[in-house]
Amino acid sequence: MSACAAVFAVSCTREPSTRASTLPRESQLNQFLADVERRALRIAEIAVRDRDEALDLVQDAMIKLVKNYAGRPNDEWTPLFYRILQNGIRDWHRRQKVRNRVMVWFGRGGSGDDEYDAVAQAPDLAGRTPDEELQMGEAMQRLETAIQALPARQREAFMLRTFEGLNVAGTAVAMGCSDGSVKTHYSRAIHTLRDKLGEHWV
């Protein structure tokens, strides 16, 4: 399916930069990527539970966007970028499955690579009291754990809508599905998270 064909009618909820249109193309791309890269990294990291892998996935997505879609209108870049990134994340999960299958075939069993070291991955702390930092960190860890337990499509819909702020149409382009599917996946994700997190999510 061509991602471009589906993007024509999409307008993202993220605010377009009025300044961007006057800049050379490379500067516009640089500005766009600089704006999106950190959120994209965290979204990829939550999906694959590994920062290094997430960094590789984000860089691949940036390269493919620049190579293939630099000429597209700026307001199409966000859903296209996340479409590429989500495809990369799905490919990554598939390669992990195949790799595990090969390991079983060689008699090595499943790898322990999935273990997620929350302490090692914890970001630097700054700007809050230790108690506040601790509370925020714990709350985010609970949220991440709950998100990681969601089915892949629900996880995609939730993170693209809530974290990246894409509207339904933009999320549909990024996920390669219909608006109705996005609403369904998102609604189910919300209900599951509400049930799992309950009163802890305050």
Binding site: R25, E26, L29, N30, L33, A34, E37, L55, V58, Q59, M62, I63, L65, V66, K67, A70
Partner: peptide, 10 residues
């Protein structure tokens, strides 16, 4: 670094 590597592809 990744962003600049991507922009080099332009």
């Amino acid at each position: 670094q990744g962003r600049h590597a991507a922009l080099d592809a332009l």
